[in-house]
């Protein structure tokens, strides 16, 4: 089926808005992680591990939107 104009707009908007939100979230997370590492350098290992786990959860939100936009595009 031919993708209509609004469909293409929706596909683009979905990943764009998701990237906006997750970007803000990742900024908060990494910023706070670095701040706590600077305050307590001996806890760097634990903070880094937990930061990556949190990053995975945040990143998944953007990736859902990516999958949705792929689905919308290929409709």
């Amino acid at each position: 089926m031919e993708l209509s104009g609004l469909g293409a707009l929706g596909a683009g908007l979905s990943i764009g808005l998701a990237a906006l939100g997750t970007g803000i979230g990742m900024g908060y997370l990494v910023g706070n992680a670095v701040a706590s590492m600077a305050r307590q350098p001996e806890a760097t290992g634990t903070i880094t591990t937990n930061m990556f786990i949190g990053l995975a959860f945040i990143e998944a939100l953007a990736l859902y939107a990516l999958v949705i936009s792929f689905m919308v595009r290929s409709l």
């Binding site: 995975a56 990143e59 998944a60 990736l63 990516l66 999958v67 792929f70």
Partner: peptide, 11 residues
């Protein structure tokens, strides 16, 4: 989410 995360990242 575990499945979609890996799949979507690679794709």
């Amino acid at each position: 989410a575990l499945a979609v995360r890996l799949f979507a990242n690679m794709l």
